[in-house]
Write a protein that binds this DNA or RNA. Structure first.
Length: 940
RNA sequence: GCGGCAUUGGCGGAAUUGGUAGACGCGCCAGACUUAGGAUCUGGUUCGAAAGAGUGUAGGUUCGAGUCCUAUAUGCCGCACCA
């Protein structure tokens, strides 16, 4: 019987559904329950284009682990859901008027269909989507909790804001004298979710603000539109309060070093000192932050960020106009301009500071190379040892004092933190490292500063001026925000007539008619009723994409719960994600926000682990592999002649051809289906070809077949997988043509999971062939006792595959199966005892065919529930000698011997060994190697 | 500029703890079966005629290095005026 993968796959997918084979249960009551294991994929945003062949890569890997762990006897949680809020659906809605809910629904349906075909073992009953009110009520709930919490820096955890209030009531006499509004304003500075006027990344084309990780080089990551800086009143999350814990937490989790480094980089801890500098003629000093306390003696000027609050204090009357002009100029510059044009700019304030060590007067400048958001927004400039200060000093002709012996600062600064200090008073003669420590101690002692740790991580801006997102559970009374009570959640996203912002620049929710809060009756009412005494306006912004994706992994644990995001019991059982697989693009976004969110919930006591993802693997990107045809554009070109790739370097054609993308689906193993090409697009209808052998197409009979050995070879290149390159491969087509099992195997076979690699269909036949050959082994199963060789093959395979899965090295398992298949079919093995085990081992990788093969051996039960076999070393070893290998008539093996033997003694001992003697035949070994302890290598 | 990762045949890639380099697959070559082959099966395939050489390059540690160390080149990724 042929390997009819279509029938097999359909049959078993239906069977699994029927039996509810992948439904996962939380343990109930007294019953101890199996050991839990939680494997998670980063849930996708369901785009209109559907899945391409790159998306399932990580899903296949996690599916293999999930199935393996099941077979190992774990209770495995392996869910899938959808990150359903997002910009594309909204933009589509603006263009077409189609409600985003409808497009999203349609796209999800398509995704589910595509995923189902690949045979993943998801428990679809646990699926979540971020745009479901049942889901986003918990996103809103978490926001409310953040609003009602502050970060206690002494205890290093979030605490209820009511604690702060009662403390102030007791300890701060001014608190009682404040009006309600003033009290609210003061609390706003402490809340973890707070409203603030902040400089934001505003993207006019998208009509919304963006978080820092959504902006790259002054352009929006999505769409690539220019982004400008604006001050707006926005919701923010106090992520920065968690900077220290987010950094320390990295040591507890099993992520790759490079990903941890990216996060460390983003958090950007730097240890330094805050120092106070007096301003000439003023009493109040101002504070700067530096990591180079050792260079104080070389400070020749000070610089403030343009937005610094110190600016107004230090500007003198006669410099006022100049400074104002500069500030105005800085303000109108976009982020993009700043990056593109990094020339030195700045202005003198007219004031002078006093260097606390040298007592010298130094001028204070303003420049946009100093950032307001970092440190104190003010620096001490040491031009000799900081390249930015150096550039500034050269431009404004300020003095440069070298502080390190032997450093030549006539052309450029010496930034390295090494060498011996000079010109530095009490630090002279010290190494830089020691000088930093000495100076820190000194400033503490003299009370002119303190040791300080700074983080680069900023608070997350949490408002988006968009429609398709979670509404804030917030209304405004007396211009201050108040929460909608938890029991009224979810606050459902209202209907709007138009998804565009309103004409007066309000977010799209400004178009909603029924969008006001009746405080008395606790309900949403028509906004015409707003009277600001009982009915109040609701927040018009919605939450950003990362809101819904920050805690979704918790919801899977208990997705039907309508009392809590996740019950205590469910969370105690599943605890955290054991294995999380997804792309690197979330390294500084989702993976920071999720960790923050989880730590906040941990502080609240809602979750029992303070890190959400124990082990994380970043699967590589699958790039496209584009194919090209080469149009002849030389003399007498008709524009219709295409030259085979192998000929384009010939003198006849060299430099006279133009590569043109051709749909990869018309190409097989780089050979063009010329007939399909002619039918592909009208302009290729009359295409003529010069084939690989140099012959031209027969004009009378253009529709030649492949039989004539006239191939047209295409060129290729690795590019991003995209429609415009005609290199998108749809998994549906692969499943149709080769089957889901082949697709799964082949994606794994392509290379290491974590590496980026091009999708190249050229090898897929080999994998498919393997499955077919394996299939044929199951034709005539017999019940005989397996031989030693057969068992050796089998146990080698068990050992290898087990090791591979445990180490997430899936690409090396497929060859192991191929080897086993080769060996066993060479041995003509058809023993049930062997074949059934092969099916069990193959089940995580190619579940459908494994299920069918298992069925042929067993007749009942599901292979996915079959116990994972153990290997037995006994079958792998040979009589006392460990791992003897024969090759080219030589033998090499290792034997354990006592320490301290001489070479001669070893030789004798080796010859005395029965097994060695067998190989040596009484001859002296050519080489004997004694490695420190007792391992010996013998080469004959 | 800072940080991380990579570099092995014609190609994708194996080599798990420092111990047979090139597993497995593609491609290619030869053969078989075929009217036919883009099907299937069998054998061969690192380079070199051979001696030999060989894991980007140059050194080092080691009995032994693709693997460890030092320098260097190239490519990819992340961050980037963060004091």
């Amino acid at each position: 019987m042929d390997y009819d993968f279509q029938a097999i796959e359909k049959k078993w997918q239906q069977e699994w559904d029927k039996r509810g084979a992948y439904e996962v249960k939380n343990p109930t009551g007294e019953e101890p329950g199996k050991e839990p294991y939680y494997v998670l994929d980063m849930f996708p945003y369901p785009s209109g284009a559907g899945l391409h062949v790159g998306h399932p890569l990580g899903y296949i890997a996690s599916d293999i682990v999930a199935r393996y762990k099941r077979q190992k006897g774990y209770n495995v949680l392996h869910p899938m859901g959808f990150d359903a809020y997002g910009l594309p659906a909204e933009q589509y809605a603006i263009q077409t008027g189609q409600h985003p809910e409808i497009t999203t629904e349609k796209n999800i349906k398509r995704y589910v269909e595509q995923l189902r075909k690949i045979g993943f073992c998801y428990d679809w009953k646990r699926s979540v989507r971020t745009c479901d009110p049942d889901f986003y009520r918990w996103t809103q709930w978490a926001f409310s909790q953040m609003f009602n919490s502050y970060y206690d820096t002494d205890r290093q955890q979030a605490r209820p804001i009511s604690e702060l209030v009662s403390r102030w009531e007791k300890e701060d006499p001014t608190w009682q004298t404040l009006s309600e509004k003033e009290q609210q304003a003061r609390l706003m500075d402490y809340r973890i979710a707070y409203l603030a006027d902040t400089k934001v990344n505003w993207c006019p084309q998208l009509g919304t603000v963006l978080a820092n990780d959504e902006v790259s080089e002054g352009l929006s990551v999505r769409g690539g539109y220019p982004v400008e800086q604006r001050v707006m009143r926005q919701w923010c999350l106090r992520v920065s309060a968690y900077a220290g814990r987010l950094l320390e937490g990295l040591d507890k989790i099993d992520w790759t070093e490079s990903l941890k480094d990216t996060q460390r980089n983003w958090i950007g801890r730097s240890e330094g000192a805050e120092m106070q500098f007096n301003i000439k003629g003023q009493d109040e000093p101002f504070t700067i932050f530096t990591t180079r306390a050792d260079t104080v003696y070389g400070v020749t000027f000070m610089v403030l960020a343009p937005e610094s609050e110190y600016v107004q204090r230090v500007v003198t009357e006669e410099h006022k106009t100049e400074v104002e002009e500069y500030l105005a100029w800085v303000r109108h510059r976009t982020e993009r301009e700043r990056i593109a044009d990094r020339k030195v700019t700045g202005v003198f304030t007219g004031s002078f500071a006093i260097n606390p060590l040298t007592e010298k007067e130094i001028p204070i400048y303003i420049s946009d190379y100093v950032l307001a958001g970092y440190g104190t927004g003010a620096i001490m400039a040491v031009p000799a040892h900081d390249s930015r200060d150096y550039a500034f000093a050269k431009h404004f002709n300020l003095p440069v004092i070298p502080l390190i012996e032997g450093a030549d600062v006539s052309e450029q600064s010496f930034d390295a933190k090494e060498g011996r200090m000079i010109n530095s008073g009490i630090l002279n003669g010290l190494e830089v490292k020691d000088a930093i420590a000495r100076m820190k101690a000194y400033i503490k002692e003299k009370g002119i500063g303190r040791v300080k740790v700074n983080y680069r991580l900023r608070d997350a801006i949490f408002s988006r001026q968009r429609y398709w997102g979670e509404p804030f559970p917030v209304y405004y009374k007396n211009e201050m925000p108040y929460l909608i009570p938890d029991e009224c959640l979810p606050l459902q996203l209202p209907e709007v007539k138009d998804f565009k912002p309103t004409e007066d620049g309000q977010p799209p929710l400004g178009n909603a008619q029924v969008w006001a809060w009746d405080e008395k009756n606790n309900q949403v009412v028509d906004k015409a009723l707003i009277d600001n005494t009982t009915v109040f306006p609701l927040e018009l912004c919605t939450m950003p994409g990362f809101a819904g994706s920050s805690a979704y992994y918790l919801r899977y644990m208990d997705n039907k719960n309508d009392k809590a995001l996740v019950s205590r019991e469910a969370n105690r059982y599943w605890r955290q994600v054991n294995l999380y697989i997804g792309g690197t693009e979330h390294a500084t976004g989702h993976l920071i926000y999720s960790r923050f969110w989880n730590k906040f919930l941990y502080d609240l006591g809602c979750v029992c682990e303070d890190e959400p993802f124990k082990k994380l693997i970043n699967q590589g990107m699958i790039q496209g592999r584009s194919n090209f045809v080469y149009r002849y554009i030389g003399e007498g070109a008709s524009g219709n002649l295409y030259i085979s790739y192998n000929l384009i370097e010939n003198p006849e054609y060299k430099g006279k051809v133009q590569p043109i993308h051709v749909d990869v689906n018309l190409v097989h193993n780089d050979v063009l289906d010329v007939n399909a090409f002619r039918l592909w697009m009208p302009q290729y209808k009359n295409a003529q070809f010069v084939y690989a052998d140099g012959s031209k197409m027969d004009e009378d009979n253009p529709y030649i077949s492949m039989q004539q050995e006239k191939n047209y070879i295409c060129g290729w290149a690795v590019e991003k997988m995209s429609k415009s390159m005609y290199n998108v491969v749809n998994p549906d087509d692969i499943v149709e043509h080769y089957g889901a099992d082949t697709l799964r195997l082949y994606e794994m076979f392509l290379g290491p999971l974590e590496m980026s690699k091009p999708w190249d269909t050229n090898g897929i036949d080999g994998v498919h062939r393997f499955l077919r050959k394996l299939w044929n082994m199951y034709e005539n199963i017999s019940d005989g006792e397996p031989t030693k060789e057969e068992l050796r093959s089998l146990h080698k395979l068990i050992k290898k595959v087990t090791w591979d899965i445990e180490h997430y090295s899936f690409n090396t398992s497929i060859p192991a199966f191929m080897i086993a298949q080769n060996e066993l079919s060479a041995l003509k093995c058809n023993k049930r005892a062997v074949l059934v085990q092969i099916a069990v081992l193959l089940a995580p990788f190619a579940p459908h065919i494994a299920e069918e093969m298992y069925h042929r051996c067993q007749n009942d039960g599901l292979v996915i529930d079959a116990e994972w076999p153990e290997w037995n070393e006994q079958y792998l070893e040979e009589s006392g000698v460990k791992y003897p290998v024969q090759f080219n008539g030589k033998v090499k093996f290792t034997i354990e011997l006592p320490k301290g033997m001489s070479k001669e003694e070893v030789e004798k001992a080796v010859l005395a060994t029965e097994d060695a003697g067998k190989y040596l035949n009484g001859n002296a070994p050519k080489r004997v190697i004694v490695v420190p302890d007792k391992i010996v290598n013998i080469v004959l």
